[in-house]
Computed example of a mutant assay.
Amino acid sequence: MDANTLDWNRTLREQFEFHWNHQLRARLAGLTDDEYFWSPVPDAWSVRPRGTSTAPVHAGAGDFTIDYAFPTPVPAPFTTIAWRLGHVLVGVLAARNAAHFGAPVASYETWEYAGSAATALDQLEAQLDVWLAGVRDLGEAGLRVPVGAKEPFPELLMADLVLHIHRELIHHLSEVCLLRDLYPHSESATDGAIR
Rank of each mutant, 00 (worst) to 15 (best):
G192R: 14
E187F: 02
F64E: 02
V135S: 03
L89G: 09
Y183N: 04
V162E: 10
F18L: 09
R136A: 14
T65Y: 02
H19I: 03
V135N: 03
Q123H: 11
E109Y: 00
G134H: 08
A94G: 09
M158T: 10
G30Q: 08
R144F: 01
L178W: 12
R167K: 08
V162I: 13
A106M: 09
A159L: 14
L182F: 14
L169H: 08
V47Q: 12
E175Y: 01
E14G: 08
R48P: 12
W131P: 00
F78T: 05
H87K: 07
L161G: 11
R84A: 01
A3R: 11
T119A: 14
D63W: 00
T110G: 15
A149Q: 13
S107Y: 04
H58S: 15
L128P: 00
L143C: 05
E187K: 11
D34I: 01
L124Y: 00
V41W: 09
L169K: 08
R10T: 08
R180E: 07
L179G: 05
A133V: 05
V130A: 11
R27P: 02
R167E: 13
E17C: 01
L6C: 10
L121K: 02
A76R: 11
P146L: 00
E35G: 02
R96M: 04
P104W: 04
V90Y: 06
